[in-house]
């Protein structure tokens, strides 16, 4: 008597092949039941769950990223990338048969924008640490930019930048919510070591 292959049984299990033969043949039925037990057991693997507010949090993040993309940052970056592409094209000594390396241009522009962001953040945090009465009006903008840069760094696989941006984000969130001149805040900024990390980075890039 003809018997089913293991592959046939898998297709039957998933409803992609008729099961008539399994009903009629005791040998194939026994093998099918074994396969059923195996595949049913895969459902026993515990999977962590997320709470009921998970969707709301995801949607809030999507909105923030999209709003920024569609608004100020989107236009500013598009302009900066276009300007850099133009600049790069002007630097070409003669027409080249090589395609313009837009990715390189984009990468350099993003790097320059990131350096500028780190410098602005370093200045703002230094003011807070050194001056009891310092009030940083731009902290919300810094925080929003920081989130975008962090996502870009993540997408680009820039682990070092991403880590620094993550640490900065934590600090900027605290700054955004803490009262002006809070000594605890100053201590936390110092303890977190972000100012030191920013100085090291700036020194490496030659901007200090």
């Amino acid at each position: 008597m003809h018997h089913l292959t293991d592959e046939d049984l898998v297709l039957i299990y998933y409803g992609e092949s008729p099961r008539a033969h399994v009903e009629e043949c005791a040998e194939c039925r026994a093998r099918f039941q074994q396969l059923q037990r195996l595949l049913n057991s895969m459902d026993a693997a515990p999977v962590p769950d997320r709470d009921a507010s998970y969707g709301a949090r995801i949607w809030a993040n999507v909105r923030v990223v999209e709003a920024k993309r569609a608004g100020r940052i989107g236009w500013a970056w598009a302009g900066a990338i276009a300007a850099a592409a133009l600049f790069a094209a002007m630097l070409q000594p003669k027409p080249s048969t090589e395609p313009v390396a837009m990715e390189d241009v984009r990468s350099r522009v993003l790097e320059a924008a990131l350096d500028s962001h780190f410098e602005s953040t370093r200045i703002a945090l230094t003011e807070i640490v050194n001056d009891d009465a310092a009030s940083i009006d731009t902290v919300d903008d810094l925080l929003a930019d920081n989130r975008l840069f962090r996502q870009s760094a993540h997408a680009a696989g820039e682990v070092e930048s991403e880590q620094l941006l993550e640490d900065l984000e934590e600090v900027l969130v605290e700054v955004a919510h803490a009262p002006t001149g809070s000594p605890e805040l100053r201590q936390r900024i110092e303890k977190k070591g972000v100012l030191f990390a920013l100085r090291v980075r700036a020194a490496k890039e030659g901007s200090l």
């Binding site: 769950d49 998970y54 969707g55 709301a56 995801i58 949607w59 999507v62």
Partner: peptide
């Protein structure tokens, strides 16, 4: 779109 995220994110 929030409805779709709420419904399918988990």
């Amino acid at each position: 779109f929030a409805l779709l995220v709420e419904r399918h994110s988990r």
